[in-house]
Measured scan of single mutants.
Amino acid sequence: SRYQRVDEALPPNWEARIDSHGRIFYVDHVNRTTTWQRPTAPPAP
């Protein structure tokens, strides 16, 4: 859903941030990219 819980676990090396307008975006520290779409953790084997 559009309103996912912010405290749900993100994949490793990802961080949720809030911009100056109060919107949540996500930072990938490995690839040094950002996205508005919440990343999903790969399925557990």
Rank of each mutant, 00 (worst) to 15 (best):
S1M: 15
P39D: 01
E8I: 04
V6F: 15
R17D: 03
Y3H: 06
R5C: 12
P39N: 01
F25C: 04
Y26V: 00
T40K: 08
W36F: 10
T34S: 06
H29T: 14
E8W: 04
N13V: 00
G22A: 03
H29C: 08
E15S: 07
R2N: 14
R5K: 15
P45L: 03
T33G: 04
Q4V: 03
R32P: 03
A9M: 14
E15V: 08
E15T: 06
P12L: 05
E8L: 12
T40H: 09
A16R: 07
D28H: 10
R17G: 05
T33F: 04
F25A: 04
Q37T: 14
P42L: 08
A9L: 11
A41S: 09
Y3F: 15
V6T: 15
T40R: 11
H21T: 08
E15A: 04
T40V: 10
T34W: 04
R17W: 07
R23W: 04
Q37P: 01
D28C: 01
S20K: 14
I24V: 06
I18E: 11
T33W: 07
R17V: 07
E8G: 10
L10R: 01
P11N: 03
W36K: 10
A44M: 12
P45A: 15
V27Y: 12
Q37L: 11
Y26K: 02
I18K: 14
H29M: 14
D7A: 08
E8M: 10
P42Q: 12
P11S: 02
A41I: 10
D7P: 12
H29V: 07
P45I: 10
Q37G: 05
N13H: 06
V30T: 12
G22W: 00
N31E: 10
E8D: 14
R23S: 08
N31W: 01
A44N: 09
V27F: 11
L10F: 03
P39R: 01
P39S: 04
G22P: 00
A16P: 05
R5G: 13
E8A: 13
S20T: 13
D28T: 00
L10T: 05
R5A: 14
R23K: 11
I24R: 07
Q4T: 15
N13F: 09
S20A: 13
G22T: 00
P12T: 09
T33C: 15
N13M: 13
L10C: 05
V6P: 15
R32Q: 13
W36L: 07
N13C: 08
R2T: 14
R5S: 15
D7L: 02
S20R: 10
P11G: 04
E15M: 05
T34K: 05
Q37M: 13
I24S: 03
S1R: 10
R38Y: 04
P11R: 01
R17A: 09
Q4G: 08
S20P: 13
H29W: 03
D19W: 00
P42F: 04
F25G: 03
D28P: 00
W36R: 07
E8P: 08
R2G: 12
D7R: 04
T34L: 02
W14V: 07
R23A: 13
Q37I: 15
A41C: 12
L10H: 03
T33N: 09
A16W: 02
Y26G: 02
F25L: 05
W14R: 02
T35N: 11
P43C: 11
E15G: 03
R5D: 15
T40S: 12
Y3N: 15
G22E: 06
T34P: 01
D7Y: 09
T35K: 01
E15C: 08
R38V: 05
W36A: 07
T35S: 09
T35Q: 09
P42R: 06
N13L: 04
S1G: 14
T35V: 04
D19S: 06
R38M: 05
R38E: 06
T34M: 06
T40C: 08
T33A: 11
N31V: 02
P45C: 05
D19C: 04
T35E: 04
R23I: 15
P11Q: 04
E8C: 15
R32D: 14
T40Q: 06
R2C: 02
Q4C: 08
N31R: 10
F25M: 05
W14H: 00
E8H: 06
H29Y: 09
W14M: 07
A41D: 10
A9Q: 14
P43V: 14
P12H: 09
V30H: 08
D7Q: 10
I18Y: 15
R32L: 07
